[in-house]
């Protein structure tokens, strides 16, 4: 379980997150939603131990993430950031192998190769394994980065807007895979994902964490949290929530 207690984060003297108290249970998909600048990406970075906290603490399975070594941290939480860029001539398989870094430290062994093959298979990238990253389509590229995060073999996957710039088909395809991964089973991961598409959150998330102005605006199971009043207040624009085939659907009105 990830537990955040009284956490505040300041960047360059400006408080970006204040008094955050949250708990994330294992398994399932949690969607972080909120307007631009609400602090969603900062929350993910702070949870993964990559940002110093102004106050409070983050514990994962009882261990304070701030006190963990880089290797222990990277074996606990995989973080996929928005600013993924690759300057080197990497193939998809090379990139996914980098996900195993906390385990192989630059010298991958048979167990790492097996984990990479599994990640490529899980994200339908096996045929693209030897293709260079910069020759992939946007959807394939994003899948490759998510596969890299998966290959890290951590119980927690923190994904910062992995659906950005994806068309509906590719976004849905990626979310189906992540949703399947979050279900109970030998490969189960707990997925915490920043999304802007509220209908994606409504369709695939189990829980919602809504952020506004660096504070928690609402948390809870999606059927309870996603209401017209909450979303209208969160985004300062009128929104309605309806149901189609048993799933909530969000419509601006």
């Amino acid at each position: 379980m990830i537990r955040i207690e009284n956490m505040s984060v300041a960047r360059q003297g400006i408080t970006t997150l204040s008094d955050i108290n949250l708990g994330f249970g294992e398994g399932g998909v949690t969607a972080l939603i909120g307007p631009n600048g609400a602090g969603k990406s900062t929350l993910l970075h702070a949870m993964s131990g990559l940002l110093p906290l102004a106050s409070g603490r983050v514990t994962i399975a009882g261990q304070d993430i701030a006190g963990a070594t880089a290797q222990v941290r990277a074996r606990t939480v995989a973080l996929l950031t928005q600013s993924e860029h690759v300057t080197a001539r990497l193939t998809v398989a090379d990139l996914v192998t980098f996900g195993r870094w906390p385990h192989h430290r630059g010298r991958p062994g048979p167990a790492d190769h097996a984990a990479v093959a599994q990640a490529l298979d899980l994200f339908a990238l096996t045929d693209l394994g030897q293709r260079q990253i910069d020759r992939l389509s946007g959807g394939q590229r994003q899948r490759a980065f998510v596969a890299m995060a998966y290959a890290q073999g951590t119980p927690w996957m923190l994904l910062d807007e992995p659906l950005a710039a994806l068309d509906p088909r590719h976004a849905r395809d990626l979310m189906e895979r992540l949703h399947a991964l979050s279900r109970p089973g030998p490969r189960q991961r707990s997925v915490i994902i920043v999304v802007h598409d509220l209908n994606i959150a409504a369709r695939y998330a189990d829980r919602i964490v809504a952020l506004k102005d660096g504070r928690i605006a609402r948390t809870g199971p999606k059927v309870i949290a996603l209401t017209s009043a909450m979303l209208s207040d969160l985004f300062d624009t009128r929104m309605a929530v309806d149901a189609v085939n048993g799933h909530p659907v969000v419509v601006p009105v």
């Binding site: 990559l50 990277a74 890290q152």
Partner: peptide, 12 residues
């Protein structure tokens, strides 16, 4: 070479 954020995220 993956960039500082990604490199730190994988434990470097």
């Amino acid at each position: 070479a993956l960039g500082s954020t990604t490199a730190r995220a994988i434990g470097l």
